[in-house]
Computed example of a mutant assay.
Amino acid sequence: MTAMTPGSNVPLSVPRVAVDVAAPSARLDVSGLLLTGDGKVRSDDDFVFYNQPQGPGVTHRSGGGSGPDTITVDTAAVPAGIEKIVVTASLDGGGPFAGTTPTATVRGADDGSVIATFTPTGLGPETALVVVEVYRRGGAWKVRAVGQGYANGLAGIATDFGVNVDEPAAPAAPAPAASVSAPPPPLAAMPSAPPPTGA
């Protein structure tokens, strides 16, 4: 098992890997985005999360509140045009990661053997993170530790990667007139770590 640092990478020796992301005493929402060479999803179908748990070669499994959410990548089933799958996390119910220590555990999906772990440190106002990425390089697959934070939640990450995050025009049930919400803040990414380096 390898304890990774931001920007480091580890070759994957198995074709199916599972990435568990958990934090002590905090419930996380974990998702995966399938990205092409230009760093974008092909469509909203490439955004895999609790409401859309199946994508081409990628699945989401909820921990049900008692365990970590898991993104599983079957590298043999990932479409040829997809270069990487980024695994993201945000706090269930929102809020910043300050005082929270999320850890990604990368393991063989079939035998459970731990391949690598990564724990981003020094988190503050970030409300969502790109934790790790599983990526294709020269015909082989690797995992890279990222730990980049965003101040505008999962919507900021999704928008950066080309997902349409438009909200429905109106809620199903009418809200009282006095409780009209303020518009959301602008979606601006706030890096919390230097960009990854190396192959």
Results as ranks from 00 to 15, higher is better:
residue 75 T to H: 12
residue 76 A to W: 13
residue 80 A to Y: 00
residue 81 G to I: 00
residue 83 E to H: 14
residue 84 K to H: 07
residue 84 K to G: 10
residue 86 V to Q: 13
residue 87 V to S: 10
residue 90 S to E: 00
residue 92 D to P: 09
residue 92 D to Y: 10
residue 92 D to R: 11
residue 95 G to L: 00
residue 96 P to C: 13
residue 97 F to H: 04
residue 98 A to G: 07
residue 98 A to P: 00
residue 98 A to S: 09
residue 100 T to W: 05
residue 100 T to P: 03
residue 100 T to V: 11
residue 100 T to M: 13
residue 103 T to N: 05
residue 105 T to H: 08
residue 108 G to R: 12
residue 108 G to I: 01
residue 109 A to R: 11
residue 113 S to G: 03
residue 114 V to W: 03
residue 115 I to R: 08
residue 115 I to H: 15
residue 117 T to L: 08
residue 121 T to Y: 10
residue 124 G to P: 03
residue 124 G to R: 09
residue 127 T to S: 07
residue 128 A to W: 00
residue 128 A to T: 05
residue 130 V to G: 02
residue 130 V to F: 09
residue 134 V to T: 05
residue 135 Y to T: 03
residue 136 R to Q: 11
residue 137 R to L: 13
residue 139 G to M: 14
residue 141 W to E: 14
residue 146 V to T: 02
residue 150 Y to S: 07
residue 151 A to E: 05
residue 151 A to H: 12
residue 160 D to F: 06
residue 160 D to I: 07
residue 161 F to S: 04
residue 162 G to Y: 13
residue 165 V to N: 02
residue 166 D to G: 06
residue 166 D to K: 06
residue 169 A to P: 08
residue 169 A to E: 10
residue 170 A to K: 12
residue 171 P to F: 09
residue 172 A to V: 00
residue 175 A to L: 10
residue 176 P to L: 13
residue 176 P to M: 03
residue 176 P to D: 14
residue 179 S to Q: 15
residue 180 V to E: 14
residue 180 V to C: 07
residue 180 V to A: 15
residue 182 A to N: 11
residue 183 P to Q: 06
residue 183 P to C: 04
residue 184 P to S: 12
residue 184 P to F: 02
residue 185 P to A: 13
residue 189 A to W: 09
